[in-house]
Amino acid sequence: MKLDFKNIVDEYNGILYKIARSYTTEEADFKDLYQEMLIQLWQSFERFKGEAKVSTWIYRVSLNTALTFQKKQKKQFSTNPIDNVSYKIVEMSGVGEEVIFQKEKKIELLYKCVNLLKKDDRAIILLHLEEKKYDEIAEIIGITVSHVGVKLMRIKKQLFQLLKEQGYGRI
């Protein structure tokens, strides 16, 4: 069981990272949420009987955890914005440092803007950015496909607006 679980996390850890980044802005909160998602996945792993795709199960459990996650009370001197400690893109062959720097800046900006959206909107745009189809998003969230379409149109407009305001074009 331990080995199966570890293999799943090895393969799908990207989902946990992206969700945790989308729902937190402080390093401590990010780490807490990442761990809480691991705990919830481990606890529900026993009950997961493969009735859905593994990735669907991970999105469902992790998004539930993120949506109900309570951030730590901010203490004046102990906050550390996650941008300052962002986990660096590992070496890419043939790509210059400047290019990597630009990419990292764009990623930070995208997460920053996603973080400004409402909690429920973040879940939907996140799944869209993960290239999930409308019916998959509807299945994970539990709303109709047409509802996903309507919501996504509004959320994308809002996200583009936020990106513009935050200076996306200037990067």
């Binding site: 090895d10 893109i89 990419k103 993960e130």
Partner: peptide
């Protein structure tokens, strides 16, 4: 851009991988 953040995810995961099971329990 979103896809590229997968590289960051990998980098973070590498830093916690040895203790993932302990964290989950």
């Amino acid at each position: 851009i979103w896809k590229e953040s997968h590289e960051q995810a990998k980098s973070y995961y590498q830093s916690i991988e040895p203790e993932v099971l302990d964290m989950a329990r």
